[in-house]
Design a protein around this nucleic acid. Structure first.
Lengths: 216, 216
DNA sequence: ATTAAAAGAGCGAACGTTCATTCTCTTTTA
DNA sequence: TAAAAGAGAATGAACGTTCGCTCTTTTAAT
């Protein structure tokens, strides 16, 4: 009973967030009214406010939900195939595969992060998570010998995140932007920054210190 | 007379845009009311509306003004010192030197571009300008022999713009972000992209980051 | 087992505020 | 003196939020 009602409550909250997400994607945070969101959720304002105390709490809830989901995806990644396949898979997944809906939603969250400390906090802690995950990944790869250990990891990670931000940004502004097309360049750059990149290391990674990138 | 009054009108418009800019930076587009902007401009609403027909026109005016200004800076660049010094100067100027105020303003403009076609048009045409300028620059450099001519210019330009977007994005979200620090990496990447030949899509490596079957 | 009461879920009209815009009037300028 | 510049109160719509109410489910005493 106790358990079931808590589950019900949690489901309702998830439904409301999903409805709010659709509205925000369609009209933006400021363009979507609470009435719109209530209609989308099939619910009266009075009832909706029993689950979330304010409009801001809705977008904070969305941000938190997505942060948690992506952190889980990081944790679930299979690291046993070497560094570069993992990076490539990740890049493909996060830069190209993610639905545009999520990209647009992200711009709404970011735009609001500037004005609402709660959202800024969530977004900052997301950043910390990503940094830590990438740092662990690179350090493990260095220990395994996939890449040299004397690289400026922090700098590389910053640049990877900058590029990821830039791709999301452009995907949001230009519906025709072809994220898939920049992936090869992205990987080439990544390999270059990590100075280890033999172009095809899937099965048997060459452990060669190769400064010149091979051209094909 | 005719001339003087036109000049006066134009000055007044510029003053209003400057006031609006301060308000938007401080509180965001939606957080700043027309009353706020009028107060900042030292002007009554009735009078302000003689210069701009709507609030949207204010941010469109700001976007257009900055677009024009930056295009002028491109035109004024000194190309006689070779490609990489020019690129480095540009990077330093646009990524690190620009005041944070402008970075924040840019996020406001971009966030609104999604909802107002006028602003989207300005931002898109800005993109076209930058692409063209960078294209000309690279082509001239190739003719001069600074870089090979068989590079995937479009891909490189896209990546340069992605990185620029990413840096602005991060500067906006994190006041402590040190753009200066990523410049060496940025230049290293740029040199690599412009020297290593065009990275054609390599054979597809195994994807190790597939999470699609995560249904429970 | 029945039932009264309490708690929870849901509704939707109403509230109070805010805000972009307009209207009318006055002042300045040419 | 006609037109341009400016002022600022007024307007009306829209919005986030609340309040009082009903209906349903759970609890607990008879």
């Amino acid at each position: 009973m106790r358990r079931a009602s808590a589950q019900l409550q949690s489901d309702r909250r998830a439904e409301i967030l999903a409805a709010a997400q659709r509205c925000f994607v369609r009209a933006g945070f400021h363009g979507a009214s609470m009435q719109d969101i209530c209609a989308e959720a099939g619910m009266s304002p009075g009832n909706l406010y029993r689950y979330f105390p304010s409009k801001e709490a809705l977008i904070a809830g969305i941000a938190e939900r997505d942060r948690a989901e992506i952190a889980q995806q990081f944790a679930r990644a299979d690291l046993s195939h070497g560094l570069f396949p993992v990076l490539e898979g990740m890049a493909h997944h996060f830069l190209a595969e993610r639905p545009r809906e999520q990209v647009l939603l992200c711009t709404e969250v970011m735009a609001e992060a500037r004005h609402h400390p709660d959202i800024a906090r969530i977004s900052a802690s997301f950043d910390v998570d990503v940094r830590k995950w990438l740092g662990d990944l690179l350090r493990a790869a260095a220990e395994r010998g996939d890449i040299p250990g004397d690289i400026d990891f922090d700098g590389v990670i910053t640049m990877l995140m900058v590029i990821a931000d830039g791709v999301w940004w452009r995907r949001a502004l230009d519906p025709d932007f072809n994220a898939e097309a920049v992936l090869p360049i992205f990987m080439d750059i990544t390999r270059h920054m990590l100075r280890g990149g033999s172009p095809k290391p899937a099965d048997k990674p060459k452990r060669v210190f190769d400064i010149k990138e091979s051209v094909r």
